[in-house]
Design a binder for these strands. Structure first.
Lengths: 336, 336
DNA sequence: TTGAAAGCGCTAACAT
DNA sequence: ATGTTAGCGCTTTCAA
């Protein structure tokens, strides 16, 4: 069923039906009602592909989220959404799986919906100019940056925390409180992604505190999920190496660590402290409340949209900003 | 940039480019290479709307998820995805917000992508034939059913747990262990949705155990999120009414309840037991591990796809199946 | 193996 | 206020 069917049944032309559909003012009330009635009777629903194909839609920004199951993104999406609306633009959200190629998805979206800009929530840290060229519109990386890629700074924008620096801060929080034997639970030390950066910060903090990193206290999961983190923590404990604190490179890892420690009979924070980075909602409800560096997702969403808008509207150049985390002192860290 | 640009630059017609794009066999190797090269140089990405508009795509099933931030859906999506692929169909996933109209989204998707079937993950419990008519293709409700609507059973399919019965089972698990004063933490007693059904089961279990429901032990949050559940539990505790157990109508509510109890100094399970329904991944990592009735998400996804396929392929009629939960005995329930 | 032409469903000038 | 016409970018007959 198409707009033509509706037109025929209503005794008008397709254009008129289109006008009704799009709330154009210049349609007589009687015709409008008639058309609406037919639409209702027929349960007609316009084909969006056809609409997208013809509409200009230069006021729409695309948001592609990679790994929507990551609870860290929920707050970020909300914020970005709000800000885009506030800026008077429309938004189209596209979620892809963790393994998928966000640039390909973004390029496709840009073409189909005729976007004026793109926001990536989560993605790879190693783009090349060749790959981003397909986008053809301004874009911004939100919550990450192109740390391992070869992109020119001027060719894109980014908003994120300084992962290495914040990790350093987290671990320093531990060393400042007398911890010397600090384990790290992370995805991978060289994934060219967030855990690699945060691992660097961990190393730097140890270094600054005059502590030699102990390879036995570095536990990689190689997978980003709770079971893997839990198993990783169990391995760490099982190794028998002494440690008084754990730095988890993500809240979810911290939560899993809490569980593994609890099952091993290690009291947190009395026998082992835990600190993480992210500040997902759930970590507020762990027992004890996870001590963590909370990413300012609201601010990140706002800044991402503002920067992108400025670039789109030609008001400003691309930009790269670091935002600061807020330390949330939960109950998982204790001074020695 | 369009297919025509590629055609022009390659010195061939648009049809040929299209053939290359779609891996048609009858294109000379030399031409294919040339075209591919130009595509690469130009960073050309086909417009999906245009493709959708013209492709038949009768082998695609749509999946619309309402409230993707709900961790309960992550496992379900994975399962559904797997099964659809196994059945030899393509899948297109569409996520909408909790407040959005999944039927409208589904109808739009059905038109745009020319689907042969639709799977709804989460949605309203009160459809009317009039509203679902717009879909125009077979659909199945996965994880819920049309309990409060007027849909004829034969007009759709569903796979879900029997919410009332499972809730009854959860609460019976408590009464069987000597609990008499059992509080319930839920969204709303009359939301025409899952909490209403589970509340009924709660009432029935009490009744069967000869216990009079105490209105003071029913706590509604009216919002489905962790902070609301946490605050609800605090109110419940603050009321000063005695209770020895809490039935949370969802795992996330259970986790929030655990936290509130902990902060109030009530030991779980010694001073208060907690049981929930859902079995989200995170509840495996609460401390203590949440005792809950785990929905068999894998089975649900599999059955949903199978039923839908049978309807699509005309092999079978619509069906409505209940699946059973698995009781996971965590550490939050203790006999009195 | 390739190209020309038609058309998918819709919107947006341009007429009237 | 309404209809006519011309595409949007692509795929797909049908011819060649």
């Amino acid at each position: 069923m198409t707009i033509k069917d509706v037109a025929r049944l209503s005794g008008v032309s397709a254009s008129t039906v289109s006008r009704v559909l799009n709330n154009h003012p210049d349609v007589s009330e009687s015709v409008r009602e008639k058309v609406l009635q037919i639409i209702d009777e027929l349960h007609y629903v316009p084909n969006n592909s056809a609409r997208d194909l013809v509409r200009s839609g230069e006021d729409t920004v695309g948001v592609v989220v990679r790994g929507a199951e990551n609870p860290f993104f929920t707050g970020l999406i909300r914020s970005v959404e709000q800000e885009i609306e506030k800026a008077g633009y429309a938004m189209v959200l596209h979620q892809i799986k963790s393994g998928d190629d966000e640039l390909a998805a973004g390029a496709e979206l840009a073409r189909s919906k005729r976007l004026c800009g793109l926001i990536f929530l989560g993605g790879s840290f190693d783009y090349t100019a060749d790959r981003t060229a397909a986008l053809g519109i301004p874009f911004i990386c939100c919550s990450y940056s192109n740390s391992f890629g070869t992109l020119e700074k001027s060719s894109y924008s980014s908003v994120s925390i300084n992962d290495e620096e914040e990790a350093r801060r987290a671990v320093k929080y531990l060393t400042d409180r007398g911890h010397q034997k600090i384990a790290v639970l992370l995805d991978s030390v060289n994934d060219h992604s967030v855990s690699e950066l945060r691992y660097r910060g961990y190393c730097r903090a140890l270094e600054e505190a005059g502590i030699d990193p102990d390879p036995d206290l570095t536990e990689e999961t190689h997978v980003y999920d709770l079971p893997a983190a839990y198993e990783g923590m169990k391995r760490l404990i099982g190794r028998g190496k002494d440690f008084t604190a754990v730095f988890a490179t993500a809240d979810s890892f911290g939560i899993a660590a809490l569980k593994a420690l609890n099952e091993a009979g290690k009291k947190v924070p009395e026998e082992c402290s835990v600190i993480a980075i992210d500040g997902i909602e759930m970590s507020r409800y762990s027992i004890p409340t996870l001590t963590t560096l909370v990413q300012p997702v609201e601010e990140m969403g706002r800044k991402a949209v503002n920067i992108l808008m400025d670039v789109i509207e030609g008001k400003d150049r691309t930009a790269h900003v670091y935002v600061k985390t807020d330390l949330r002192e939960g109950g998982t860290v204790k001074a020695i």
